[in-house]
Design a protein around this nucleic acid. Sequence first.
DNA 1: CGAACACTTGACTAGAGTCAATGTGTGTGG
DNA 2: CCACACACATTGACTCTAGTCAAGTGTTCG
Lengths: 228, 228
Amino acid sequence: MRSYNARADIVRDGDQSHECCLVLTGFVHRSKLLKDGRRQILSFHTPGDMPDLQGLHLPVMDHSVCTLMRTTAAFIEHAAVRQITREHPGIAEAFWRDTLVDAAIFREWMTGLGQRDARERVTHLLCEISLRLRGVGLATEAGFSFPATQTDIGDALGLSTVHVNRVLQGLRGDGLVRGNLTALTILDWQGLQAAGDFDPTYLQQRPKEAKGGETSGHASLGSAQAVH
Amino acid sequence: MRSYNARADIVRDGDQSHECCLVLTGFVHRSKLLKDGRRQILSFHTPGDMPDLQGLHLPVMDHSVCTLMRTTAAFIEHAAVRQITREHPGIAEAFWRDTLVDAAIFREWMTGLGQRDARERVTHLLCEISLRLRGVGLATEAGFSFPATQTDIGDALGLSTVHVNRVLQGLRGDGLVRGNLTALTILDWQGLQAAGDFDPTYLQQRPKEAKGGETSGHASLGSAQAVH
DNA sequence: CGAACACTTGACTAGAGTCAATGTGTGTGG
DNA sequence: CCACACACATTGACTCTAGTCAAGTGTTCG
């Protein structure tokens, strides 16, 4: 297990990876840097995620994994993972499925980047972050705390920081949210979903358990703990 | 094996898929439609590709697979594929790897959609199409023929048809290419790569064989034949 | 306290979209 | 063989969303 400060690289673009990373506490993002410094954030990850599982079969990284805040992560040698997946096809399928959900989220983001305007992109991302944090018990319908700056949001959505700021002000003005990413209150969840044309199917989340029963269904790839 | 006309759906968004599609001849794309009709093209596929391999473990489609021209495709029941992957972990890994390359291409496209301007996006896509067609023997360095309209390119790159048209004229004016997608001559491959900041690593293509020797390396998932 | 970082605001610019019309080539039916 | 329809490509004029630049204002933290 290793510990990282905020804004630290866990794996770098071009690295030859020989182990998989499992986020235990904290948050990370994956990103690609262009030569001139432009940055595209590709995904955000919560505790329980394995953000570089793809390194198992594509050993040279085409992007970096970086922390958003102080983060701890466990590492498992590829050799060990490979042995497990060889011996237990069910686990191999669960891992494979995990990378497929990853790709489904990429497709949704591509659609946003290509077709949606700034307001739709921002609200869509807020909805996604909310649901994913709720999925690991780090948020409620009322709001969440996520350690991304407006610049991070801009780099994820293909928008400038200034424009992200203005869109957020618009959402506050329309009574949809209050506060900032680091302490966001959702005032109108329905309105937020509508503004972002948000349909959560692509997240492939297990259906919410009714009361307090144990979640059934597909393998869950790790246990999560809130840090903050 | 089934045959499709141009602009036909092979699989539709929302379908519960129970078989995998292998493109034999022709070309297809995958796309998502928004409620108001906006369309994001997510990928293009050549003969030999299995564009909906992900359906194996995410059984409800989050996008459609459509033909660009008259296309023939073979279909394999998920049950059969699953049995093969259970019995032959090496094949499972090859399929898994295929979906991971798919995701790597998504990441590159996301980066383009979020960070690159119109000219960079168009040239980058031209480079990608060229290399991928060459990879299956359907093009040379001199150029290619690809049955996408300017509207298709626009929907893939998040640009309007009119703007795609103007960018292409710019590239012709600068002596980089001649003609149109359906009959493109590449006049300056180096210049095209430079204009699109194109680095083909993400395609994970096997290194070009030296003379005429058999390709070694990773499993190739099908054999291709030119149509057109 | 002061540096660093994030957020906010205003004024101006520019890249890309929209609208509408006009080519241009192809195929088809009479 | 021609007329017509259709799909795709092209052009011009105008608009607008989002970017850029530059200057603030917090706020945190060593």
